[in-house]
């Protein structure tokens, strides 16, 4: 464990806790993409299968359970909670997210480290996570006023993988870890998708004005 990976995991944990708090306290999921949340459930289920087969550390196990539980909980709130589901921007959240699943799975069948079920699913989860934020970013462009909690949620979510990139650089040079091309490229694509959001988020934070993405 290094400071970059710990910071990344904490940023990721904070992002899902922030989102859950926003939904629970405001009883609203306005501005949040259900499609992105559902993609994240698939990402975590596909990636954390080794939860039952390999024990790395207490931390690793607890964090996997937390990420699976929170992502399922958020989808439950947005789909079934009688008050929250009324606030879902169904007409704006129109990205057909099931379209990205087959290509990611096919790519995982073609490009992977080993051709085993666990490895292909793990690789699939990396590719899917790289594009999972797309529905949310598209919804943001369509949302007139983005509330602070949502903006902070997306910033922390983007920051976590950016910190993981630093973690991989650290591990490659300091721990002489092997090259992890699949993780690196997926992580780069994922972080690159946040580039314009980061730009507008930091600009709004500097000028102390409302976050607004150009349509």
């Amino acid at each position: 464990m290094n400071i970059f990976r710990l910071a990344g995991d904490m940023s990721h944990l904070l992002s899902v806790i922030l989102l859950l708090l926003k939904i629970r306290t405001t009883k609203s999921c306005a501005g949040i993409s259900l499609k992105t949340q559902e993609l994240y459930v698939v990402v975590f289920l596909a990636r954390y299968l080794n939860l039952f087969t390999r024990y790395y550390s207490f931390y690793n196990t607890v964090m996997k359970l937390v990420f699976i539980a929170t992502s399922v909980c958020i989808v439950w709130y947005m789909r079934f909670h009688k008050v929250v589901k009324q606030t879902y921007n169904k007409d704006l959240d129109t990205f057909r997210h099931y379209v990205v699943i087959p290509p990611c799975f096919l790519l995982a069948l073609l490009v992977h480290h080993e051709f085993t079920v666990m490895e292909v699913l793990w690789t699939f989860s990396l590719y899917l996570e790289a594009v999972a934020i797309l529905p949310q970013l598209i919804l943001l462009q369509r949302t007139r006023n983005i509330d602070n909690l949502t903006g902070n949620y997306i910033f922390l979510l983007g920051a976590y993988r950016a910190l993981y990139l630093l973690n991989w650089i650290y591990r490659f040079f300091m721990e002489k870890a092997q090259a992890r091309w699949i993780s690196w490229i997926s992580g780069l694509v994922q972080t690159a998708l946040y580039a314009d959001f980061f730009y507008y988020y930091i600009k709004s934070w500097k000028n102390n004005e409302k976050l607004k993405l150009p349509a």
């Binding site: 790395y56 990420f67 480290h113 080993e114 993981y164 993780s183």
Partner: peptide
């Protein structure tokens, strides 16, 4: 292709 990296990350 290389052996799969250790999955100790989240």
């Amino acid at each position: 292709c290389q052996s799969s990296p250790v999955k100790d990350e989240l």
